[in-house]
Design a protein around this nucleic acid. Structure first.
Lengths: 212, 212
DNA sequence: AAATTTACTAGACGATCAGTCTATAAATAA
DNA sequence: TTATTTATAGACTGATCGTCTAGTAAATTT
């Protein structure tokens, strides 16, 4: 029994290794989950590696450091979420404000599905800034600005179609939306309920109402 | 040279040791600072101990664990902040809504003074929940509910004095305030500016406006 | 088919983590 | 005076942290 527990094969994998996703993708994928739940600083590399079944050596082959990994996950999540936003917001069969309501419902369902343990990755890392490298600030804010633009465009359409007052500054309202929405997510995690999300949404829509 | 660097005295300190604050108080004090900046999970005990100049033995004499320390800091901060809230909110020389505006100015100044590196301890730990023990959930939410009540009482006075519409549900508005305010703090840390705080405050006050 | 490059892996490394333990000594109670 | 309590000092433990080095082997180039 010179080889009772054979160690894994070393070296470059075969071209036809059957694994559906590449190692890097798997890392990014689970990285998104764990950063959405726990953030970066308090998540150990070993945990990620063990879960995904990737050795440390491979990790440092793909990413220069844990920070670089975090930055890559941010990019990845920012794009994924922008897509998700567009899916609701650019729906041509719905009125602009209904599109926004759809997104909110979607986000609520998502949080409920994960028992309110997962929040917003960008919000999480934003809160963590104090423990993180300064390198994170800009990418994080850029993601917010991108999302903000998408909401602003939705509101602009609502304005054009007369669903909201022409007086409304849509850029400002979009900024207000993300400020409050992130706060609502934080609180929803705390109370394990979508009530804070509903409450903020209600007040947000209210603030769009035409002033008589 | 049998004692080139004499180690510190052991044993219980003399009654007249001149130190202004007790060890436990010093730990709580700096704990508040560091948890407001970086959160609990990513702060090492050794860092706290070194900064405050307290040995491990003393720490574990006063606190059963790091978690218990965190819980104690929460209590401490919750009470300190409730006091700060009251200072603005219960000012009898100001109208209720002006009292709220005073608190907001106060909070803005506080964040600016610390270069937007310190946020809200309760919000920070709330965001960290995913990495923290379940024991933190209830105390954290209770602090929010306490603060919420104080805002609600302020709004109730504004209602009674006719500054805001009698239609307004003050409990709900108070909940809305803390949801959004915490989001604004998070964003203010990210952009190192009080703009998010101003923006939220503006929209909040707007939402209190009497509907014509 | 030999040499080189690319893709990847195993595990050692020192630092730091929360927490424990024994020793020490002042303050207080008996 | 003696016993007990309160508080401090810091070495130590075992686990876990992020990082790095040396190596293996398939793929590609020559």
């Amino acid at each position: 029994m010179e080889n009772s527990t054979p160690t894994k094969r070393r070296g470059r994998p075969l071209k036809t290794d059957g694994s559906k996703f590449a190692t890097k993708e798997k890392l990014l994928r689970y990285g998104t989950v764990v950063l959405t739940e726990k953030g970066l600083a308090s998540t150990g590399l070993d945990e990620i590696l063990k879960t995904v079944g990737v050795p440390k050596g491979s990790f440092y082959h793909y990413f220069a450091s844990k920070d670089e990994f975090g930055l890559a996950v941010i990019q990845n999540y920012g794009a994924y979420f922008a897509n998700k936003l567009d899916h609701s917001l650019l729906n041509k069969e719905r009125a602009p404000l209904d599109c926004l309501a759809d997104f909110i419902e979607d986000a609520k369902d998502g949080m409920a599905k994960h028992a309110f343990k997962r929040g917003c990755l960008i919000g999480n890392l934003g809160q963590e800034l104090g423990a993180l490298s300064e390198k994170f600030r800009e990418p994080l804010e850029n993601v917010f600005l991108d999302w903000q633009n998408r909401i602003a465009q939705c509101l602009e359409k609502a304005k054009a179609s007369g669903h909201i007052s022409s007086q409304i500054n849509v850029e400002e309202k979009a900024a207000f939306f993300w400020i409050g929405w992130e706060g609502a997510i934080l609180r929803a995690k705390l109370v394990k309920s979508s009530a804070p999300l509903d409450l903020f949404a209600k007040h947000f829509f209210n603030s769009l109402q035409k002033q008589l």
